[in-house]
Computed example of a mutant assay.
Amino acid sequence: MQNIRSVCKICEAPVEDVLHVLFQCPHARATWFMSPLGLRTESLTEKPLLEVLLQLWKHLTNTQLAMFMSLGWHIWKARCSYIFQDKQCQPSSTLNDAISLIQQCHFKNGTWLNLGSDGKANSGEVRVQTDEGAQCCCWVDGSVGVTPASQQSGGAAYVLYKQGTLMRYELEYIAKPNSPFQTETQALLSAILAAQQLGVENCTFYSDCQLLIKTLEPTRNFRNIQAADWQAYQSLVRIAQLLLTHPGYCCQYISREENTQAHWLANRARTDRLSYVGFTMPMFSMG
């Protein structure tokens, strides 16, 4: 394989061939390892590129191969951006671009991509039950737990659908929340702000927190919220203002069993200390 350059401009390696650019450069290695494929490419240093590709071709599914090609393309684009535009891309940005591309391809066929923790991918129809007459539906949830250092941590999440198709989802890590109620209100506030930003005029927001739904009833007085939840109080005031200015928005209670996706995402935000916004079905399983 012919060398592209004598020296890698990113890591100053003495030889920059295709194998180095796609697999051996630290940026590429980090991107592959962070990806849903979880490849550790440091073991490929002594193998010819063709042998590497043939080995992967035999062991990856068609969906995983599509992800592999998208990652390789965006790793190459990141390298070119650094050399020709002096623009440095983080591995996480390269990964997100690759995931977005492959998911857009799947959504053109009306399917979503679901890659579980075992690394096996499945695709299926997007089917979400929505209320008749509701333009959009959104599920929200919050989560609170204790870290190994005995500190309280939290997560908030929402999943927004329009006529059964995913529009947007968000995970938000909350460090040291005052209470579980605070994470619930933060999840709902983030969801309403997202719907407003996307220009949604009619939306039903579902939560499995009865206290939150009851508190938002017009007859309730926000001053009754306990002083320990003062941060939740601030969010409630903003939520109430948004609901007043958007008559097409309403909040309803649902059971935990009906709120699996938002519940799973909120737990992931908390346990992984992860904050992330997505516009297509995530590559990981949502419960």
Score class of each variant (00 low, 15 high):
Met1Ile: 07
Ile4Pro: 03
Arg5Trp: 14
Val15Cys: 09
Glu16Leu: 08
Asp17Asn: 13
Val18Tyr: 04
Val18Asn: 02
Leu19Asn: 09
Gln24Tyr: 07
Phe33Arg: 12
Pro36Asn: 06
Arg40Met: 06
Thr41Trp: 05
Glu42Gln: 10
Ser43Asp: 08
Ser43Val: 13
Glu51Ala: 08
Glu51Trp: 10
Leu54Ile: 05
Gln55Tyr: 14
His59Met: 05
His59Ala: 03
Thr61Ser: 14
Gln64Tyr: 05
Ala66Cys: 10
Met67Arg: 00
Met67His: 01
Phe68Val: 01
Leu71Pro: 04
Gly72Tyr: 04
Trp73Phe: 13
Ile75Phe: 11
Lys77Arg: 15
Cys89Phe: 07
Ser93Ala: 14
Asn96Ala: 15
Asp97Trp: 12
Ile99Arg: 08
Ile102Glu: 04
Gly110Lys: 11
Gly110Phe: 09
Asn114Met: 15
Ser117Pro: 12
Gly124Trp: 14
Glu125Thr: 11
Gln129Asp: 14
Asp131Ser: 08
Asp131Glu: 10
Gln135Ala: 07
Cys136Phe: 01
Cys138Lys: 00
Val144Gly: 00
Val144Thr: 09
Gly145Asn: 08
Gln151Lys: 14
Ser153Phe: 01
Ala156Phe: 03
Ala156Lys: 00
Tyr158Ser: 03
Gln163Pro: 02
Leu171Phe: 05
Asn178Glu: 04
Glu184Ser: 06
Gln186Tyr: 03
Ala187Met: 03
Leu188Asn: 01
Gln197Arg: 14
Gly199Ala: 11
Gly199Gln: 10
Cys209Val: 00
Leu212Cys: 05
Thr215Met: 13
Thr215Ile: 13
Asn221Lys: 13
Asn224Met: 12
Ile225Pro: 02
Gln226Phe: 08
Ala228Ser: 15
Asp229Gln: 02
Trp230Lys: 07
Ala232Phe: 02
Arg238Asn: 05
Ala240Tyr: 07
Leu242Asn: 01
Leu243Asp: 07
Leu244Ala: 15
His246Arg: 12
Cys250Asp: 05
Gln252Lys: 15
Ile254Lys: 02
Ser255Val: 13
Glu257His: 12
Glu258Lys: 10
Thr260Ala: 09
Thr260Tyr: 13
Leu265His: 03
Arg268Ala: 07
Ala269Tyr: 04
Thr271Glu: 11
Thr271Ile: 15
Asp272His: 12
Arg273Ile: 01
Leu274Val: 04
Gly278Cys: 09
Thr280His: 13
Met281Leu: 06
Pro282Gly: 09
Met283Val: 14
Phe284Arg: 04
Met286Tyr: 08
